[in-house]
Computed example of a mutant assay.
Amino acid sequence: MLSLSLKDAQLSLDGNAGRVDILHGITLDVEKGSSLALVGPSGSGKSSLLMLMGGLERASAGHVTALGQDLTHMDEDELARFRRRAMGVVFQSFHLIPTMTALENVATPLELAGDKDAFSKAAAELETVGLSHRADHYPSQMSGGEQQRVALARVMVVRPDVLLADEPTGNLDEANGNAVMDLLFELQARDGATLVLVTHSNALAERCERIVRLRDGRIEGTGQ
């Protein structure tokens, strides 16, 4: 069963210098519950491809299907509801709300979904990532590694079917980066989620079941 399927997907964006072609005819299937690393040099289209998979960018041509839903034909409101229900995205920057505590940050997506147990579930997820003692702390009071773990807890508390991670350790030192990645794979296994990971790290990519290499907006090769 497929979680993600792209058929001849293309992405072009309008810039100051005119229209720029970013992705060229990407065809790719991702099995449910699998882990996939997207690798390649800077500017190869890795993050853009991840954004297509999450419906954060709309394909200029071709089709993008996620969990059986054709994202190409959804409007912005439909895409937002779909992402909130089924997808989680972890970025290099933590994107925590600075005026909220760790507990409040993690509870936010559940509150938006109307979950009456938002705070108890958020507290349990903070404990899972080893940060129950930081529940009442604000982002500015936490280290980068702790902030990324809070961001990961916020994503995983909704139990997404698809987890997209864009250089999640890019702002962390090696020790914190390794700890966050261990946690990411543990949570993926716990929930049976599909993981797509953008990374420059060969060691990190090799932890995934499959590697897709991009260059100049095209798939250059795939492997284990």
Score class of each variant (00 low, 15 high):
Ser5Asn: 10
Ser5Met: 07
Ala9Gly: 08
Ala9Gln: 02
Leu11Ala: 09
Ser12Gly: 11
Ser12Ala: 15
Asp14Arg: 13
Ala17Cys: 09
Asp21Ser: 10
Asp21Leu: 12
Asp21Tyr: 10
Leu23Pro: 01
Thr27Glu: 06
Thr27Ile: 15
Thr27Asn: 10
Leu28Ala: 04
Val30Tyr: 00
Val30Cys: 08
Glu31Cys: 12
Lys32Asp: 08
Lys32Glu: 15
Gly33Trp: 10
Gly33Cys: 14
Leu38Cys: 11
Gly54Trp: 02
Ser60Ala: 14
Gly62Ser: 06
Gly62Pro: 13
His63Cys: 14
Ala66Lys: 06
Leu67Ile: 13
Gly68Met: 02
Gly68Trp: 12
Met74Pro: 00
Leu79Met: 05
Ala80Phe: 01
Ala80Cys: 11
Arg81Asp: 07
Phe82Tyr: 14
Arg84Ser: 11
Ala86Pro: 11
Gly88Leu: 00
Gly88Phe: 05
Phe91Ala: 08
Phe91Gln: 14
His95Ile: 05
Leu96Phe: 07
Thr99Trp: 00
Asn105Arg: 00
Asn105Met: 02
Glu111Phe: 05
Gly114Ile: 07
Lys116Ala: 15
Phe119Gln: 15
Ser120Asp: 08
Ala122Glu: 08
Ala124Arg: 05
Glu125Lys: 12
Leu126Lys: 11
Glu127Cys: 05
Gly130Lys: 07
Gly130Asp: 07
Leu131Cys: 03
His133Phe: 00
Arg134Trp: 01
Gln141Phe: 02
Gln147Trp: 11
Gln148Ile: 01
Gln148Arg: 09
Arg149Thr: 13
Leu152Thr: 12
Pro160Val: 12
Val162Leu: 15
Val162Gln: 13
Val162Pro: 13
Leu164Met: 08
Pro168Lys: 02
Asn171Asp: 11
Asp173Trp: 08
Ala175Arg: 09
Asn178Ala: 15
Asp182Thr: 12
Leu184Phe: 10
Glu186Met: 06
Gln188Ile: 10
Arg190Asn: 00
Arg190Glu: 00
Asp191Leu: 15
Gly192Trp: 07
Leu195Gln: 01
Thr199Met: 12
Ser201His: 07
Leu204Arg: 09
Leu204Lys: 07
Ala205Asn: 02
Cys208Ala: 08
Arg210Asp: 00
Ile211Glu: 13
Ile211Ser: 06
Gly217Lys: 04
Arg218Pro: 08
Ile219Asn: 07
Thr222Met: 10
